[in-house]
């Protein structure tokens, strides 16, 4: 039991330190790597409290997919240039008030969540789910999501779908003059439309790109 607690606190410590390093680190790519470390240690915490399904899904979704896309974008930045222009760029200073507002909102949300911890016992009593404790947590999560909360589950799926379509609409634009390859046309080409035999007159030649 003691060994379990020690390992738990080691993972919590790594999670907190790497979360701080995400914001402190000057190199953006290092920040993302610390973020990944944070995700991994949090999923380890999930596994240690017995929520192995959540822990694994956290690894697969956040570390395996989301953070890869983060890295994808961040790696394109010019890190060396960024180091010299730390907070001196004039256009970034106009974002500071909005940034402060957002962080204030997040801070107050965190306060509310931590405040709710005080009423944790009452909250747990008010949950009227009849969970079968003999099932693994994957199964019980499945039962709860797909029976009692199926509408909320579908609704959150809808929100994600709208977000996805929105992202596609924002980034998709038809560009003219782009040469694309059509697989159907490539496969269905026949000899008589691809090859043409022409008798070329001497000293006159022909125009090919007509």
């Amino acid at each position: 039991m003691i060994a379990h607690a020690i390992v738990f606190y080691i993972f919590s410590l790594i999670a907190i330190v790497s979360a701080i390093m995400v914001t402190v680190s000057r190199n953006t790519v290092h920040s993302v790597f610390f973020l990944i470390l944070d995700f991994i240690s949090i999923s380890c915490l999930f596994i240690m409290i017995g929520a192995e399904f959540l822990g694994m899904i956290m690894l697969i979704v956040y570390v395996g997919a989301v953070a890869v896309l983060f890295l994808f974008v961040v790696m394109m930045l010019n890190v060396a240039q960024q180091k010299n222009e730390w907070f001196v760029a004039s256009d970034s200073s106009s974002h500071i008030p909005i940034g402060l507002l957002v962080s204030l909102v997040i801070f107050s949300e965190l306060l509310i969540v931590i405040g709710g911890w005080k009423y944790k016992a009452e909250l747990q009593e008010s949950i009227n789910l009849n969970l079968n404790l003999n099932l693994t947590n994957t199964q019980s999560l499945g039962y709860v999501i797909y029976t009692d909360y199926v509408h909320l589950f579908q609704l959150s799926g809808m929100v994600l779908l709208v977000a996805m379509i929105g992202a596609i609409v924002l980034t998709f634009r038809k560009r003219s003059g782009v040469k694309t390859q059509s697989y159907l046309r490539q496969i269905s080409r026949e000899r008589n439309e691809g090859v043409e035999l022409i008798d070329v007159e001497t000293k006159k030649g022909i125009k090919i790109d007509a």
Partner: peptide, 16 residues
């Protein structure tokens, strides 16, 4: 219990 998810997670980390 979640062996297959573990394998899937580890193989998705392989890209790093």
């Amino acid at each position: 219990n979640v062996g297959i998810l573990y394998l899937f997670a580890v193989s998705s980390l392989g890209v790093y």
